[in-house]
Design a protein around this nucleic acid. Structure first.
Lengths: 212, 212
DNA sequence: AATTTAATGTAACAAATGTTACAAAGCCTT
DNA sequence: AAGGCTTTGTAACATTTGTTACATTAAATT
């Protein structure tokens, strides 16, 4: 585990911190679609992403969900950071988008790291800030852009996260993420297909990389 | 100044911290409409709000703006916190919504406070988190709600912030905040007036408090 | 008071998105 | 191969929001 930690966090954390994380943290591997953090549960720890990508959604009591941000290699989840310092139940849900590895730091140790290691503090601050920037970005998209652009952007992000041009998903699933109806998505996808930007097949959307 | 600090922050900061802030900070008073933080400038310090309310907007290079959150009594601006630790130019604009008082802590002293005072750290973390919650709330509104509900919500928020049921603003200004056109706002305001929720006059929208 | 300017009201139309209903195609099971 | 289920395609229509254009009204200025 310590080698994974060194590889991902060696440039931002001093080695004494890496060693301490190695002692108190536990390595976890999850496969795509697995739930890391469930809605309404107490947060057990703070995840340090080693590899992969996890999608973080705000969840509402009525079951409604809203995508907030991805956490990727080198990131942590600022929402759970707060949940754990406040001992609150989770208002988010985190689901692995692809197979992922991360180190879980137990809640009880987080405060200690904060007071002991300036580089950890720096990391936590910049993590908060980066997540904020991403939520603001999501807000921007919804506030300024039309659905067709948001769809195109969504597909590209998915492709980047899953490291694949061929997305295995149904129109219905896309519609849920963009908070619209399946018919609307089918219509717009068809339009994008006619523009030569992608190819559609049952359960798959294949993005065609632009040649510039 | 120290009495103002005690009154607003006495419950969260230990007295040695209050005294230190009193030494290094400077009290500033601004009147409504004054700009606290300008787009593109280096951030000079972190504001601790004593009273009043300040509106924080994301600003884009093309001049476009997007409302993010208000900071009120007892709050600080997490975006400027980050700008200052990173020595970056401001990507936001902060404008006093009403006459406001705040204590400005110079950038150079912030890092020191963080390592020295646990209560300051706690404050900074919860500030980050609260701002995040508000941006998520804004995202929620845009993602889920129709324009008429967003307008009603917007008017209530304005009323709360300005502590007045009579809002002095034009339809044009409202339209800019909600990213739509004046005609649309006029239309919806008329609808709300016909529903008995408000009264319209030139330059004013008077909310009619609901009797329950 | 007359003139100018800013703000609002309203109609008519355009575009974007949402909804319903149903047909067609693909995949799975037996 | 037949039947059933899921997914996708498409039409027709409703609603919401955006746009243009112009009339009307209120306030500010002269």
């Amino acid at each position: 585990m310590i080698n994974l930690l060194r590889k991902t966090f060696g440039f931002i954390f001093e080695s004494s911190l890496i060693e301490e994380i190695n002692k108190i943290g536990t390595l976890r591997e999850v496969s795509a679609e697995e739930e890391l953090i469930r809605f309404g549960e107490f947060v057990k720890g703070v995840p340090l992403m080693i590899s992969g990508a996890v999608r973080v959604n705000r969840v509402y009591p009525d079951g409604n969900e809203l995508f907030l941000y991805y956490i990727e290699e080198g990131d942590t989840c600022s929402m759970s950071l707060n949940c754990c310092t406040q001992q609150k139940k989770s208002e988010i849900r985190a689901v692995a988008e692809i197979d992922s590895k991360f180190v879980m730091i137990p809640v009880s140790k987080v405060e200690g790291l904060i007071s002991k290691y300036p580089s950890w503090r720096q990391f936590v601050f910049s993590s908060y800030h980066n997540r904020m920037v991403e939520v603001v970005y999501a807000l921007e998209k919804v506030a300024f852009e039309k659905l067709d652009d948001r769809l195109a952007e969504y597909l590209h992000q998915k492709s980047r996260i899953t490291k694949s041009d061929t997305l295995q998903m149904t129109h219905q699933e896309i519609a849920e993420d963009l908070r619209t109806s399946r018919v609307v998505i089918s219509r717009l996808l068809k339009k994008l297909e006619q523009m030569g930007k992608l190819k559609l097949q049952r359960n798959t959307v294949e993005l065609i990389p632009e040649i510039k």
